[in-house]
Design a protein around this nucleic acid. Structure first.
Length: 449
DNA sequence: AGCACA
């Protein structure tokens, strides 16, 4: 028998193991993709990715040795190589008998996540964006950020380990949606592990750390900025007193902004209780009332500086109102109290939304953010795929897409027009929050949508 | 394209 001197011999001499070693993986590969890869052959009980100096190796551990053998055998004779995101991966038995890491599939970590933001522009990701992203899974108590050799990192504290786990499962390995980032930042990938911390120590509200449980915490001197108090800058973050009522002023109002439009835009973040519109200094302003401060904060952070319509029209500037409960004397086309059931029926003007947003009175069915955003599969089906933001660069990723990104930002599922959704998500200054202007734009006369 | 972390 002639010697199989070249590389196949290496593989043949590997003693079988229920752990497989994979290489040549795309570096974005997630553990979930490893599970998908191994699932046809047996029960994947553990995985580890981002192994090796290039982070392009991984391990898959099967429940049973025969399952590992089945996978190796299959790909040894298959004409189709194993692939992840279209990239051929090479697999062989590992020289280990089990994966040792801090987690198995029934993983319980702590309530604090260690988040590494990867990407050339990672350190330009603001703490507010992180807050927005993680708030989708539950109340975020505190965030601290810092730079280490690993890069730009953050500790994100949730109430409990379950919430942290759901955030980790959904977000690990994913990119921050580009429309949440300042324009033309490169992709920023989240790598998430559990921290050993249980309660972060946040001394100041600053651009590096926040305590969302303590609005009265002193503001760090470094965070006080003389001017841009209403701009969510990358480096400094204003701390004006938060409120459940937002004051919106609308810049470059080429199109009429109606009550219904405002209601639709702001409803994406939680139930809107009241809206009052008025003219001020020749421009339009509106007060939008949410049931709680938290919702208003999320809405403000997400919407500030965005345009309602494409082309930079009707740009929103948001600040916190001093009001906490608006007094709506009469429901008309400038003001409305959505908490009064009867008034839902009256619709004094045609709605461009095709559907009058339903007022939420009493406790909202889905408190925002919280459970509403929990990535439950049942919501997935009917939702458009959030391709713009959460795509991780490869083929469709079927699971663990955080469902909240279908709701939030910006459009509640019920009111999302079909034209919306892909690709047109809102970039800070050009993309509009709504796909259509209510009237024909002054230019692009017949350019549909 | 060739075996981690605690």
């Amino acid at each position: 028998m002639s010697s199989v001197s070249s590389q196949p011999q290496f593989r043949l001499t590997q003693p079988p193991s229920k752990v497989l070693h994979l290489r040549n993986l795309p570096w974005e590969c997630t553990e979930e993709e490893l599970v998908e890869l191994g699932k046809p052959f047996g029960k994947v009980v553990n995985t580890k990715c981002n192994v090796g100096p290039n982070r392009n190796q991984a391990f898959i551990e099967f429940a049973d040795l025969n399952q590992a053998i089945a996978m190796i055998s299959y790909y040894a004779s298959s004409s189709e190589p194993a692939q992840v995101r279209g990239k051929t991966v090479y697999l062989q038995y590992s020289n280990r008998q089990e994966i040792v890491n801090n987690k198995t599939t029934a993983d319980v970590g702590g309530n604090v996540l260690l988040v590494t933001i990867e990407g050339a522009d990672a350190r330009l990701v603001s703490i507010d964006v992180l807050h927005l992203v993680f708030s989708a899974f539950g109340f975020v108590h505190k965030i601290t950020t810092f730079e280490k050799t690993a890069g730009f990192q953050a500790l994100v504290q949730f109430s409990d380990a379950e919430t942290a786990s759901s955030a980790k499962n959904a977000l690990d390995g994913r990119n921050i949606p580009s429309y949440l980032l300042p324009e033309h930042l490169g992709p920023c990938t989240l790598r998430i592990t559990y921290s050993a911390h249980t309660d972060l120590s946040v001394k100041f509200q600053s651009h590096r750390s926040r305590d969302y449980t303590n609005a009265n915490l002193p503001v760090a001197p470094s965070a006080i900025d003389a001017n841009g108090m209403f701009s969510a800058g990358l480096d400094g973050k204003k701390l004006e007193p938060e409120s459940n009522v937002l004051l919106a002023s609308i810049e470059n109002m080429q199109y009429a902004v109606t009550l219904d439009v405002l209601h639709m835009v702001f409803s994406s973040f939680g139930p809107v209780q009241k809206i009052a519109m008025f003219d001020k200094n020749g421009g339009l302003q509106a007060l939008i009332q949410y049931p709680d401060v938290q919702t208003a904060v999320v809405a403000k952070e997400a919407l500030e500086g965005h345009c309602i319509y494409d082309g930079g029209f009707c740009k929103l500037h948001l600040s916190y109102s001093r009001h906490s409960d608006l007094s709506i004397k009469v429901n008309n086309d400038r003001s409305r109290d959505y908490t009064i059931p009867n008034t839902v029926m009256m619709n004094p003007q045609p709605s461009i939304l095709g559907q009058q947003p339903v007022a939420t009175h009493g406790p909202p069915a889905h408190p925002y953010p919280g459970a509403h955003f929990a990535p439950t599969t049942e919501h997935h089906q009917m939702m458009p795929q959030p391709s713009a933001g959460w795509a991780t660069g490869g083929p469709p990723v079927p699971h663990s897409m955080p469902a909240q990104m279908n709701h939030n930002p910006y459009l509640p599922p019920g009111t999302m027009p079909p034209q919306m959704g892909h690709g047109r998500m809102q970039m800070p200054s050009h993309g509009g929050l709504l796909p259509h202007a209510p009237a024909m734009p002054p230019y692009r006369p017949d350019h549909r949508q």
